[in-house]
Design a protein around this nucleic acid. Sequence first.
DNA 1: GGTGTAATCAACCAGTCGGTTCATCAACCC
DNA 2: GGGTTGATGAACCGACTGGTTGATTACACC
Lengths: 111, 111
Amino acid sequence: MAVDQLSSTFSALADPTRRAILERLADGEATVNELAQPFPVTVQAVSKHLKVLEHAGLITRGRAAQWRPARLRGRPLEDAAGWLERYRQFFEGSFDRLDDHLRAVQKGSDG
Amino acid sequence: MAVDQLSSTFSALADPTRRAILERLADGEATVNELAQPFPVTVQAVSKHLKVLEHAGLITRGRAAQWRPARLRGRPLEDAAGWLERYRQFFEGSFDRLDDHLRAVQKGSDG
DNA sequence: GGTGTAATCAACCAGTCGGTTCATCAACCC
DNA sequence: GGGTTGATGAACCGACTGGTTGATTACACC
């Protein structure tokens, strides 16, 4: 099991079912049964997914009678986005040219 | 094994060794031995990591004599960042208030 | 207090993962 | 061609993952 936060976050996001759950939660909180409905898996499987998401801090669980509504939490997503942001320089244009550009930058100034 | 691109990308990023490899590659291309040096694992293990990264499209491999330099490729990172970007609304401020805000928005306009 | 529903727990299973060791391939160089 | 170095291939191992089924807990309602 990944110990660091970032690994937990990316690991949680690596599953398409879990990403779909998060997308659904972006529209507002939902119960396990509601979340499980669109997927061809059992409620127990979704419950496990929610535990993974909760462990990664991507959701919090409420308590209302026998329901445990899940709610999206943005912070880990923000951290993940922050990590990726550092590679923005590689996003734009051809990565082939980027290498030359980087080498030039490294020689010309501090990193 | 994850079939979709986004899952492959997040899965590849879920390992701290692989993220460190990418960080190193941001400084320019490097060989397997160079990449393996900082880590307390064998070269073979790093070679496996590179295969995962290559499969996810996060790196490309060159060919120079008996060396196979790895080079960072930004495209999948950009896609991952794009997916996360859709949650930017959840980044800022308290997520508790966000829920109220979302409900208000949902009532006020088309959902 | 018994019944029905929401959700989790527990045990199990097949497949994948990250790592190892040993063996092999590929290219350079004398 | 043989030795050395860079890198991968193959087999194996323990741990984790995503899924199942069956049992159990927690709460509402009559």
